[in-house]
Computed example of a mutant assay.
Amino acid sequence: MTEVDLLTLEDALAEGAPVIDVREADEYAQVRVPGVTLIPLSEFVERVGEVPDAEIVYVICAVGGRSLQAAKYLSARGINAVSVAGGTSAWSQSGRPVEMGA
């Protein structure tokens, strides 16, 4: 499984699963899913050591392209990672809660 839907992400967040947002800092400041950790894709390789050790790591971006890249990168390194299909845009458009600001 390389992608999950918003309902799966919502359940994972409720259980305290780690979610990595791979968008850039300016995108993250505009709107984000509550509880995510920012590691921009442009810094991802250098900061991969910051990815928490967990049963599953969820990766999110704006719509799903960058998060899929990052999830595949993590999977190739033995980390069980999945991308969130639709990303932050779909999360926000669904009416789920968001955070804004730095």
Rank of each mutant, 00 (worst) to 15 (best):
I79K: 12
L38I: 14
G87E: 01
A70K: 01
A90W: 12
L74R: 03
E43G: 05
A102Y: 04
T8D: 15
Q93Y: 10
V59M: 09
G64T: 06
A54W: 08
T8R: 14
L38P: 13
Q93T: 10
I60S: 08
G64S: 10
G35P: 02
L38F: 14
R47A: 01
Q69N: 12
A12I: 07
E10D: 09
V51H: 02
M100P: 08
G101K: 01
T8I: 14
V59Y: 04
G101Q: 00
A54I: 15
I20H: 02
K72P: 02
V4R: 05
A17R: 15
V19P: 09
G16W: 05
V48W: 10
V98E: 01
V57G: 15
Q69H: 13
A14S: 14
V57T: 15
E27C: 06
D53R: 15
E43N: 00
I79R: 14
Y28I: 00
T37C: 13
A14K: 14
L38Q: 13
Y28E: 02
R66P: 05
E10R: 14
R77K: 07
D21Y: 08
R32T: 04
R47E: 00
T2E: 15
Q93R: 13
I79T: 15
L7Q: 15
L6S: 12
C61L: 03
A85C: 10
A85H: 11
I56L: 12
I79Q: 11
A76C: 09
R47N: 01
G86S: 09
G65L: 07
L6C: 12
A25I: 09
T8P: 11
V19K: 09
V57Q: 15
R47P: 00
Y73G: 06
P18K: 04
A70D: 01
G87P: 01
C61S: 05
A25Y: 09
V33D: 02
P97Y: 06
G16K: 04
R32M: 04
